[in-house]
Design a protein around this nucleic acid. Structure first.
Length: 873
RNA sequence: GCGAAAGUGGCGGAAUUGGCAGACGCACCAGACUUAGGAUCUGGCGGGUAAAACCGUGGGGGUUCGAGUCCCCCCUUUCGCACCA
């Protein structure tokens, strides 16, 4: 520290309160961090990636972009600390790193804030972005801001509109009147993915209602099969996320079978004349055991029947209410099955049998066809239902077992196994289930009453939102020409400003005549503009492509740039986006590939889902009052300490229990490093590192060198493999502790090799610390007199020869119990080690007078002497 | 109900392949330097004992020379799915 600064700090200390002069080597994070902060601020392109096409190997590391709420929380800090450490590590390993950041800046909170504070959403949002960007910079995150993406800006959302037109062109965007999820708090529609246990994803206390609305949909179901199939390729993704997506897509192979309606005399008819009920089943092999048809209460045929029958209407309404209750109940479990007979019948096309049609509360209209054939003997739900209403239960499959006793005996009902043999099934009796399914599906298809088919749980993505702060959907409604897309050349459809959203009923944009009234590009006549905006998940479905070419104003991005950078090598974010964001992103990628924009099938090579930050056993939240503010942590302990602690306190994939005392410990550690390096800086800077050879070192020095190389290995291995940064950091702490002990024990003699060694160790220590604590690392880099930039300085090399122990301490067990320790050369022969072990006093006394049954030596690990048991006691 | 992950000192966590349980850090205790300590340094720190022995990784069994780690049964927590035909 220059003397002037020293003096300043001394006087400052005295005049304030009690900052004593002999603590002037204390690490002052505020001073050091603000110094580097200033420098970095003056170098806006410090972290800019090399242009795409660079010779260097590329590495694209990405953290999920935040919603600009106005302040970072600890979850962000943790997320970005992981990504930043990785980006810096890859830089130091010579990669061309792309590490961008942006803002998912459309969405409801801006509208609520606008109403509350009387601030326009745009102003509120941009103000928040500025605040959060400053926070990120203060934390020292190395982002390439030249590629910043802000989704609420026209230069971004015009490409949302462009993509929408492409979807429309390809027949993958369509409009339909449908029953939609409506959140009364958001006052807008929710996608299926945004409904959790019958409640709004952002309002856990609010039940979602059903409404009939005209909506725009994107045909994600066209890619259902590929989205499912390609999950197999994503072996860099957590299995948990893949399972969740697999469940969400919900592929199910089965058969559609049409049952003819049986018209009773004088019934007045029901359903379409000559009509049928189509059912979906995965077990067509059990169709001879079908003893009723069960319809969803919302089924059109039920509506028909109920229209003429008020009594039935009331009962069906009751079933609908029960069904809704079950959905809302979430984890409370299944409700009791209820049903109502319609007193109508349908004909089983296989055996021509007449079976009753019921309406049941356990049949869902939005899965399959909303109708099933009920086979009580071979389905648990059907069994329960049939028992309750005394419907016939007919066994048509018998178990086949290796045990002859069991084979062909009557099974316990319901018998749902797939590996049985058919009975009571006409010409199909005697077949096994799998074969029967094939033959029966074929028969149905040949006779025009059914076919093999695949059903998905995944539904098309409803993207219309009746909100203001979003991307306008670029569509027009002309009286003459109907639905007309806005021509590409007219994009973007600009979201108007100065819109009074506080009293809006329905879509706020619909109250703006100057927005609504437009001209039809086809006929030149008057047209009405679409006033709904897009779901904000559209924005985040492709934003990471925009980073590759963020300022392109004639395409969403340049294909070559995307081809260079994609797929994303490492994506890091919360598991809460496992379905919504990550499935939409995969869908968008596949669509862009089919457009010819990109060549990759999947956007993300490796996905990492970090754990939550919790405090006092609960997720941080304002209502619980356990929120830790990053600003406060930075002010008290510094950015390095906050970052380091968020990596140290737990492995990154697990939840992190925040403890203020823990971060204080990290600050102590950083101070220790700082003091060590400042004390030894001058000695280190004069020594030549090249003169160092293991042979010239004293045992104590060799030990330090060994520890250094072991630490380099541990930290490097973790970056390459399992990402347990908590153990990386503890390894660095061990190294520092060892250095400290070494320093204490070293006398002033042999200074020259000592300082040469110190030069090497300090340099490498600083490099090891650089990805985690960039401020301190840069400061120390300067202090030891290094001239070049630390940012991309080469990562230290691990030398196995230098890391190798020369002597080992081997624990000696007798019958698996630790009795002594011996020190042997690392390459000692087994016989030598065993002799030494048997000569150990404690071992001797444990085995005196006993016969040695067995001697075990695990090289380098331990010795175990086995003597007859019992005699040891 | 089904599936997955987890359960280790007072606390966060370590033990990467079946081989010294508790690394590293926090908290705590004692000491040193101090007018002072929320600075720094040294030592201690699972239970138990004077010291040993011994006990100890959710519980119970098993395999093994040896088990936190493998196998079987059970308990608890978290997450995901849940009338999906």
């Amino acid at each position: 520290m220059p003397p002037q600064d020293k003096l300043q700090e001394m006087t400052a200390g005295v005049s304030q309160r009690s900052e004593p002069d002999r603590n002037d080597d204390r690490y002052n994070p505020q001073r050091v961090e603000s110094k580097w902060f200033e420098r970095w601020q003056n170098e806006p392109n410090l972290y800019a990636a090399d242009p795409s096409g660079s010779e260097k190997k590329k590495y694209y590391v990405l953290e999920m972009l935040p919603y600009p709420s106005g302040a970072l929380h600890m979850g962000h800090v943790r997320n970005y600390s992981i990504g930043d450490a990785l980006a810096r590590y890859m830089w130091m390993n010579g990669y061309n790193v792309l590490h961008p950041m942006g803002w998912d800046s459309f969405g409801l909170p801006a509208e609520n804030a606008a109403i509350q504070n009387n601030t326009p959403p745009r102003q509120w949002t941009l103000g928040n972005i500025a605040k959060m960007k400053a926070q990120m910079n203060r934390l020292g995150f190395a982002y390439d801001w030249s590629r910043e993406v802000t989704t609420c800006m026209p230069d971004y959302y015009r490409w949302n509109q462009w993509f929408f037109l492409k979807f429309y062109e390809k027949g993958l965007a369509y409009r339909k009147n449908s029953r939609v999820n409506w959140c009364p708090k958001c006052c807008t529609v929710l996608a299926n993915e945004q409904v959790v246990d019958g409640r709004c994803w952002r309002h856990e206390d609010t039940l979602v209602e059903q409404r009939e609305l005209e909506q725009w949909f994107l045909r994600i179901t066209k890619y259902a099969d590929e989205l499912l199939r390609d999950l197999e390729k994503l072996d860099g993704w957590p299995e948990k996320v893949r399972t969740m997506q697999r469940n969400w897509i919900g592929r199910s192979e089965g058969t559609l079978v049409d049952f003819k309606l049986d018209y009773p005399e004088n019934s007045g008819g029901f359903g379409p004349a000559g009509g049928t009920i189509s059912v979906f089943t995965t077990r067509v092999d059990t169709i001879y055991g079908a003893t009723s048809i069960q319809l969803a209460p919302q089924h059109p045929i039920v509506a028909d029947l109920a229209a003429a029958n008020p009594d039935l209407r009331a009962k069906v309404d009751q079933l609908i209410a029960e069904q809704r209750k079950a959905k809302e109940a979430g984890d409370i479990g299944e409700i009791e099955k209820h049903g109502v007979p319609t007193n109508r019948y349908a004909i089983n096309p296989f055996n021509k049998e007449k079976i009753p049609i019921w309406v049941a509360n356990y049949i869902l209209m939005d899965y399959g066809t909303g109708a099933i054939m009920s086979v009580p003997a071979h389905d648990e739900r059907d069994y329960e239902f049939a028992k309750k209403y005394k419907l016939e239960i007919r066994l048509v499959v018998l178990p086949i077992s290796n045990d002859p006793e069991e084979t062909m005996t009557e099974p316990v009902l319901p018998f749902v196994a797939h590996d049985g043999m058919l009975i009571n099934s006409g010409p199909y009796s005697g077949l096994d289930c799998a074969e029967a399914i094939k033959k029966m599906s074929k028969f149905a298809e040949e006779n025009n009453f059914g076919k093999a088919t695949v059903t998905y749980r995944l539904k098309d993505w409803g993207i219309s939102r009746q909100r203001y702060w979003g991307t306008p959907i670029p569509m027009l409604y002309c009286e003459k020409d109907g639905i007309v897309p806005v021509p590409e050349k007219d994009l973007p459809v600009i979201l108007p400003e100065n819109v009074d959203i506080s009293h809006a009923v329905g879509s706020p944009l619909s109250s703006l005549p100057e927005f609504v009234n437009a001209t039809c590009p086809n006929c030149g006549g008057p047209a009405r503009r679409e006033t709904d905006t897009m779901d904000t998940f559209v924005d985040s479905s492709w934003y990471f492509y925009r980073y590759t070419d963020a300022h392109n104003d004639h395409a969403p991005f340049d294909s070559k740039a995307a081809q260079y950078w994609f797929p994303i090598d490492q994506y890091i974010g919360g598991v809460e986006h496992a379905i919504l964001h990550l499935i939409y992103s995969r869908f968008w990628t596949k669509f862009m590939r089919d457009l010819g924009l990109i060549t990759n099938d999947e956007p993300v090579e490796r996905l990492f889902t970090q754990g939550m930050v919790i405090k006092d056993g609960a997720k941080m939240s304002k209502s619980l009052g356990n929120v830790v503010s990053p600003d406060e942590m930075v002010a008290r302990y510094g950015a390095d300490a906050a970052r380091l602690y968020s990596l140290f306190a737990a492995p990154p994939d697990r939840d992190l229990d925040w403890q203020d005392s823990g971060i204080a410990g990290i600050q102590r550690f950083l101070g220790k490093v700082y003091r060590f390096v400042t004390r030894n800086a001058s000695a280190a800077s004069i020594a030549s590192v090249d003169t160092l050879s293991a042979a010239s070192l004293s045992p104590a020095e060799r030990q330090i060198q060994r520890k250094l190389h072991q630490t380099i290995k541990r930290v490097s291995d973790d970056f390459q493999g399992r990402w347990h940064f908590n153990t990386c950091i503890s390894a660095i702490m061990e190294l520092v502790n060892a250095l400290h002990a070494y320093e204490e024990s070293t006398t002033s003699q042999a200074k020259s090799t000592s300082s040469a060694l110190l030069a090497e160790v300090q340099r490498d220590l600083i490099l090891l610390l650089a990805p985690f604590a960039p401020y301190l690392a840069h400061e120390l880099w300067e202090i030891i007199g290094e001239k070049g930039s630390l940012l991309k300085a080469p990562w230290p090399k691990y030398d196995p020869a230098l890391a190798k122990e020369e002597e080992l301490e081997i624990p000696v067990q007798v019958n698996g119990r630790l009795r002594g320790r011996i020190v042997v050369p690392a390459d000692a022969a087994e016989s030598v080690v065993l002799d030494r072990a048997l000569a150990d006093e404690k071992v001797k006394s444990a085995i005196t007078g006993k016969q040695i049954v067995k001697r075990i030596y695990v090289p380098g690990k331990l010795v175990n002497i086995v003597v007859p048991s019992g005699s040891v006691k």
